[in-house]
Design a protein around this nucleic acid. Structure first.
Lengths: 192, 192
DNA sequence: CCAGAATTAGGACGGTTGACCTAATTCTGA
DNA sequence: TCAGAATTAGGTCAACCGTCCTAATTCTGG
């Protein structure tokens, strides 16, 4: 499962190709060529394209879980943790401007394909939603923690979509600042 | 160019198929089958897949221009016009929950394909942006009309993305109400 | 050292794709 | 009416797709 194993390399290459070119437009040959292995070797590790997709989704889920867990560990300030999330769109600005959000675009593509793994892909989005919900709960939001989480998540998705369409760095900076300001205002009075 | 001509029927079917299944996953045969014509007839009207895409983009551009022009004509209340735009996501809720926003998802897909018509697809998004900018200017926003336009457009895109992922009607209703409330607050004091 | 498992290489398959062609049919205007 | 243009039908093509197979090679434990 490590990144230097053949299987790991395949999943890593597939992950990037699915992101940069889309799942449907990435062929077995594309991935095999990226890893520089034969198609037969490829077939030994993954018998169908759907199996690769599932492995990629697993990797993306694990990667995001690791990232969120790291934030949970390294910072006991809730606002700072939420800030880390919101700023993903700035940290990964170049890639997002080129290919959009990896989670949002995969979700959209699999929906159009009516793909069996559609729900599994959505669970990455749900991972963010649930993590954000926990942050807002910790922030003191009682009933509307889930609503706030969806708000921030949706807002971020919108920023990513327009970032890709218009490549407007100032827009991204502005919106991120606005989201953070909104989060500040979302702190209940009882907290603070 | 009319909808009942063969060419018009092809473009209409392609428009819907590109939306519901994606451009890359829609084949010549799919479109021909939807219109119930032979592949040869199809080839007479469109020699390449890219030609169909361009025609679909033209149709979408024209459709949106017509829609925006209708709003401009039928209502001289700027707030009401912006409301019409924001509520697209409610009016088309069912389709958006199934396939996302037609404009946003096409933009995202063509970016991944690095398709020549990518910029033309983006111009549909730009059409919305520019129209919204004009509305905010008319609302009295001097310098930040363009920023407000991008804000509302991006917000709507985010709502569409999450609507597709989570199929949460209440979320859509909530966000639309929030956007409208935000627009109200965006009115400069000199106006009102 | 060697047997057997794990891994890799690369050919082959049926099906589909976008693209192209020719022939038949229908429409249109002089 | 009829010649020519416009349109439709359907076959064909090479290339590529995902999938599957067998044979060669490398790794591993006893």
């Amino acid at each position: 499962m490590a990144g230097n194993s053949t299987r790991g390399q395949i999943v890593e290459a597939a992950d990037e190709l699915f992101y940069s070119h889309g799942f449907g437009q990435t062929s077995f040959a594309d991935i095999a060529a990226a890893v520089q292995i034969s198609r037969g070797n490829f077939y030994y590790h993954f018998r169908t394209k759907d199996e690769i997709l599932d492995a990629v989704i697993d990797k993306r889920l694990a990667d995001r879980e690791t990232l969120l867990a790291k934030w949970d560990e390294t910072s006991d300030d809730v606002l700072r943790r939420i800030e880390c999330f919101v700023k993903i769109v700035v940290v990964n600005q170049a890639k997002i401007m080129a290919f959009g959000c990896p989670v949002g675009t995969l979700t959209a593509e699999l929906a159009k394909l009516d793909h069996p793994s559609r729900e599994r892909a959505n669970s990455i989005m749900a991972l963010f939603r649930d993590w954000l919900t926990r942050q807002f709960e910790e922030l003191g939001c009682k009933e509307n923690a889930a609503e706030n989480a969806l708000h921030v998540l949706g807002w971020s998705q919108g920023v990513a979509t327009l970032a890709q369409a218009f490549k407007d760095e100032a827009f991204v900076q502005r919106e991120v600042a606005q989201i953070l300001a909104w989060v500040d205002e979302a702190i209940p009075e009882s907290a603070g």
